[in-house]
């Protein structure tokens, strides 16, 4: 029988993969992909809890808002990446080094 635990393990795996992606990638677009994995894992949690824990639709509505936010974030991110690419001809974070951290 498929239960809550199955979905949670999948979401935990997606979350860990997302974190890994964020940590190892230098390319801005790849980091964004990692963020999308994290957001998807959160959404999967919400929908699973909506069915098995809360017993109402609030989790699903939360997930819809997360999707909206993700879209807005990616749009702004891509705008900045494009603008930066115009200037530097690179989107790799390690070459974005005018500001030494």
């Amino acid at each position: 029988m498929i239960g809550l635990g199955h979905y949670l393990v999948i979401s935990a795996a997606l979350f860990s993969l997302g974190i890994m992606c964020v940590l190892t990638r230098k390319n801005a677009v790849s980091v964004l992909m990692g963020v999308e994995l994290i957001l998807n894992s959160a959404n999967l949690n919400l929908v699973a809890f909506s069915k098995y824990a809360a017993g109402n639709l609030n989790g699903q509505v939360f997930a819809i808002f997360i999707i909206i936010v993700a879209a807005a974030e990616v749009a702004v991110a891509l705008a900045i990446v494009l603008s930066m690419y115009r200037m530097l001809r690179t989107v790799n974070l390690d070459r974005a080094d005018t500001l030494k951290g």
């Binding site: 498929i2 959404n43 069915k51 999707i67």
Partner: peptide
């Protein structure tokens, strides 16, 4: 699988 039909459609359209 989780019975979230609207969300599945949203996921496909937006993501």
């Amino acid at each position: 699988f989780l019975g979230a039909d609207f969300l599945a459609a949203t996921q496909l359209v937006i993501y």
